[in-house]
Amino acid sequence: MSRTTLRLAALCTVAAGAGLVALAQAFCGDYYLSILDFVGIAAVLAVSLNVTNGFTGLFSLGHPAFMAIGGYVTALLVLPPGRKEMFLPDLPAWLASAEWSFAPALAAGGLAAVLAACLVGLPVLRLKGHYLAVATMGFLIIVQVLIVNLDWLTRGPLGLNGLAPLTDLWWVYAVLVVTLYVAYALKFSSLGRAMLAVREDELAARCLGIPAARARILALAVGAFFAGVSGGLWAHLITAITPGSFSLLMAFTIVAMVVIGGSGSVTGSLLAAVGISLFTEALKPVEESLELYGLAEIVMALGLIVCLVLRPRGLFGSEEPRLLARLFENSAP
């Protein structure tokens, strides 16, 4: 297949996806639509963590922190001034009067997460392996503590509720497509290859003149951007945002998706995210009717351990389907 045909096929796939979204919007009930929304957001989170974690081997548990930052920023920008005055009387005037539309607010949320990633990344990315993991977990807890305590900005533990239900399947689908495009394009660019080289052997990569530090911080920032955006989507899907949502359990869930899918494989993360979140959603009614709360988490944790023992590189390793590789290779900057 020539490249032009491939591109055409890719566009058709995206369009077909859009068609499915239209069908779902038209015929699915709210319950099933919200499940699809959650699945899509999970996929964005897993694919974006894979950019951070899979491409460069930076093991970060801080993803929910970026999500929280993005979510709060988006919510604060979108929230009508009247409601802000009620919730947060002490906001500075410029923020109190802001009333942005959803798209720029999402982008701003993503950028705020990028800013946080750069601030925390500069010192912390010097750490390696499980020490980096622990430090990013520390970062997650610090962000949680800040959100709980900065009452004037976040309304503390109560969080912000009654947000406008702006997120629908179209938004989720669009963000997912962009995330996937960026992830694949990055992976098959020379920069992406440099990142994978840093993961395999940092010393060797440095010797080849690959700026390892820059590759790592870029990977963290790109991952943080999409985490921030999905935080905004998430908040306006459940129409509330509270500090408790962005927990270690969430970090673990995203990590499990990446590891099971194969850290480094965008396709793997996507499929694992879809599979695992569909599975946990399907288990929810079971949990509730049998009163076995926590069952989904237990099954997921067990699945992860089994995967680490039997197939430590995950379902896909760092591989992508051949066609995708041909589509993106040399086409990206």
Binding site: F252, V255, L308
Partner: peptide, 28 residues
């Protein structure tokens, strides 16, 4: 024990999984 010899991060992820499992078993 089944993971001995794997990279450090693997063990750490596994321990995270064990922790989530114990907490949720406790809740259950």
């Amino acid at each position: 024990r089944p993971m001995r010899g794997a990279p450090q991060v693997t063990g750490f992820i596994a321990s995270l999984a064990v922790s989530i499992m114990l907490q949720n078993l406790g809740v259950l």
